[in-house]
């Protein structure tokens, strides 16, 4: 618990650092391409197109999901997914790829995964804005439900930061963890309601699938963007569960991070 407080204080004290470093990260990610940051939009769009063709047009025969056209249902979820996938993979390897840059012992290493995630978050905001604009041309335009969106964004950031505190530390100590994270992310794509709708499955299976905290965030984004419900209130118990998971990740992540941090350079 004490280590969680230490890491939290480090984050609060270094907000400016996180912001600046994330901007540099964004810049060095996208340099060298003529279209620069546009690729962060083009790539997801191409992938969403092909997923729609396979899962929406091919498998679902364009059946809507509870009155929502499949393409919009998928778009709302996949916007979250592109961020989660990129951020988790990059953040997990962030510590061991950047530790050489850190030339000072007292540098708050715990903010490294956070600023990498923040850099990806800017891209997420752009993609989200585009999806939002698209939705304005459909019956699912802006509604009062949209005001929950910042809450889910915050929840998602908290989840990613806590989770990558664990993975970035473990991946530095044992590089193979990065591979595990990669396979895990591939599985997660299908275990989260992103490409197919699990609502016709037996109740028990659905409950088990909700163990995945990302399920909560994806459904939450959807309810806000499509204006279908107050998800966090309607599923209050799930909201409580989600925050317990985040806190557990954060407490455990901070503990392992602080335990190994002094010796990160030795694992190079």
């Amino acid at each position: 618990m004490r280590s969680a407080v230490t890491v939290l204080i480090e984050h609060i004290r270094n907000l400016y650092l996180i912001r600046r470093l994330s901007l540099f990260e964004l810049k060095s990610d996208n340099s060298g391409h003529y279209l620069g940051i546009l690729w962060e939009i083009i790539n997801p769009m191409i992938q969403i197109g092909i997923y729609w063709f396979v899962f929406g047009y091919g498998i679902r025969r364009s059946h809507p999901v509870e009155q929502v056209p499949f393409i919009l249902w998928m778009l709302a979820g996949m916007t979250v997914w592109f961020f989660v996938n990129q951020a988790t993979l990059q953040a997990s390897k962030s510590v061991y790829t950047r530790i050489r840059m850190v030339a000072q012992m007292n540098f708050p290493i715990s903010v490294i995964p956070t600023y990498v995630i923040t850099a990806k978050f800017y891209q997420h905001l752009i993609l989200l804005a585009i999806v939002f604009i698209i939705f304005q041309f459909t019956p699912f335009h802006v509604s009062v439900y949209l005001i929950q969106l910042p809450y889910y964004m915050f929840g998602l950031l908290a989840l990613l930061v806590s989770f990558s505190l664990i993975t970035s530390t473990l991946a530095t100590v044992v590089r193979d963890v990065q591979m595990v994270v990669q396979s895990f992310m591939r599985i997660l794509l299908y275990l989260t309601p992103l490409l197919w709708d699990p609502s016709h499955l037996p109740h028990l299976v659905q409950v088990i699938m909700r163990i995945n905290p990302l399920f909560y965030i994806v459904e939450g984004y959807r309810s806000a963007l499509l204006g279908t419900s107050w998800y966090l209130v309607d599923h209050a118990a799930y909201t409580v569960y989600f925050w317990i998971v985040v806190i557990l990740f954060f407490v455990f992540g901070s503990a392992v991070h602080l335990k190994f941090r002094a010796h990160f350079v030795d694992y190079m």
């Binding site: 600046r20 540099f24 840059m101 030339a103 007292n106």
Partner: peptide, 9 residues
Amino acid sequence: IELKCLMLG
């Protein structure tokens, strides 16, 4: 320059 100085606190 800025990055390095930020890293140095």
